[in-house]
């Protein structure tokens, strides 16, 4: 039966050994997972139809590298524009002007509801709606007039479509981040004589970023993948470049694997960056975890 532990008797409590609790269920589960993983890897590596030789041959092909450049470029430009515009829309939505708030809410509703693909096709075909675009005084004289088709090439159409869509999402992210900063912070800043601009950039935004960054990383990853949709308007991004190649040599699967691996690599890098940024931002902030969690939706921080 259980021995009565006498702490005073030698060899004393420090000499007692500890044994970890056994978890046979976990051992079995781990074994099953390892087995399944090994099977998956071996199938992928040994099935000749994956054509790993072809994958290797095209992996650093110049058209593919250029396509990656286009995808990354579009992602970066769209993200920067959307961050700037999204901040403006979020501030309009939260501001004291009823009109601005309504306009911002309408903007968010419209561009979040229209599927990305529909928007891309729409902007690409804008020339059908407005054959010419002009700069001038509203209802007055026009100074310059452009031919829509030449102005709105596929790249411009793509960036506009992606940016409007992304702006709507990012505006909501930024708004939830700003709402997570307690009002007392703005009041304290105001009593110190900070202007609204100083308060926003130096007090509110840095604290809101902690809430905004994790979902923003996901947004960036979604955006990178969403750029693959531009292949429908024949813009030579990573996916379209791959499609152009396999349309000629019929090596469809290996080339799609090339694209997939590149998307995985870039997403992995973004994730790493996101984690480092989050770790830096999560220090020293008093936004309670539950408030931050609510604003982030289903996201959970590190």
């Amino acid at each position: 039966m259980t021995k009565v532990l006498n702490l005073d008797a030698p060899p004393g409590i420090t000499a007692l050994k500890r044994a970890k609790r056994r978890r046979p269920g976990l051992l079995v589960a781990n074994a099953v997972i390892l087995l399944l993983a090994a099977m998956a890897v071996s199938t992928i590596l040994t099935n000749p139809r994956f054509e790993w030789g072809t994958v290797g041959k095209y992996f650093f092909e110049i058209r593919i590298i250029k396509g990656i450049g286009v995808s990354l470029g579009m992602t970066a430009v769209t993200m920067l524009l959307s961050l700037a515009l999204g901040t403006v829309v979020a501030l309009m939505r939260m501001g004291s002007s009823r009109l601005m708030a309504t306009v911002a809410a309408a903007f968010i509703w419209v561009f979040r509801s229209i599927p990305m693909l529909v928007q891309l096709l729409f902007w690409y075909n804008l020339a059908a709606l407005f054959p010419t675009l002009s700069l001038g005084i509203p209802w007055g004289p026009r100074f310059v007039t452009f031919d829509s088709n030449s102005l709105l090439g596929p790249l411009t159409a793509a960036v506009i479509g992606l940016t409007l869509h992304e702006t709507a999402y990012i505006a909501e992210l930024i708004r939830s981040g700003l709402l997570a900063v307690p009002d007392g912070q703005r009041q304290a800043a105001a009593t110190l004589g900070l202007t609204p601009g100083q308060t926003f950039f130096r007090i509110t935004l840095p604290q809101a970023l902690r809430v905004i960054v994790p979902p923003l990383g996901n947004e960036l990853i979604s955006l990178l993948k969403a750029t693959s949709l531009v292949s429908v308007i024949s813009l030579a991004d990573l996916l379209y470049s791959v499609q152009l190649i396999y349309a000629k040599n019929f090596q469809t699967v290996p080339l799609l694997i090339v694209a997939a691996i590149w998307y995985m690599i870039i997403t992995g890098l973004i994730t790493l960056l996101q984690q480092r940024l989050e770790r830096r931002l999560s220090r020293h902030t008093l936004i309670p975890a539950d408030r931050a969690g609510k604003a982030k939706g289903s996201e959970h921080s590190l």
Partner: peptide, 10 residues
């Protein structure tokens, strides 16, 4: 000076 201090946590 506020009841909840309102120091800037960052």
């Amino acid at each position: 000076v506020f009841q909840n201090f309102n120091l800037f946590p960052h």
